[in-house]
Amino acid sequence: MAAVEERTLKKMLKQYRHRDLAVREITDTILNYKDLRPVMDAYNFLDGSSRDLMSLAGTVPVCYRGSVYNIPVCLWLLDTYPYNPPICFVKPTSKMIIKTSRHVDSNGKIYLPYLHEWTFPRSGLCGFIQVMTGVFAEEMPVFSTSATHRPSLL
């Protein structure tokens, strides 16, 4: 599956202040995580305002008790990205429930020190996803309510 082309990303990110840096980061991320794709959509801020932002939506693989699960996530990028951290959510399907923890709240929002301590260029999306999947391997953020799940064995 081919990655989205750079010039398409540039068009999508025309309102981003550091577009070239953002394009490089996103390209790198979707090459490493094949089940994430870039999507422009309306992001609703807590103050009620809304803005068209890019998100990387899809799944990331997490190894949990010997099986690999495709955990659905959505990583929103502010127009100041990569100088501000992504806003990240677990997105349970209708057959999943969120297990809240100190890292994930009931809305699925993800809280990790990596995000609080975000400093570009030391921080980046790939680094964040590595940390996030490592944390999820210890503290699974979603569980299935369906009995018919079929995990892929390692």
């Binding site: 799944t59 693989p61 699974m140 979603v142 569980f143 299935s144």
Partner: peptide
Amino acid sequence: LNGGAVPSAPPTYT
């Protein structure tokens, strides 16, 4: 565009 794997999660915890 990238493809999409089917989301999955471990069975309900107790």
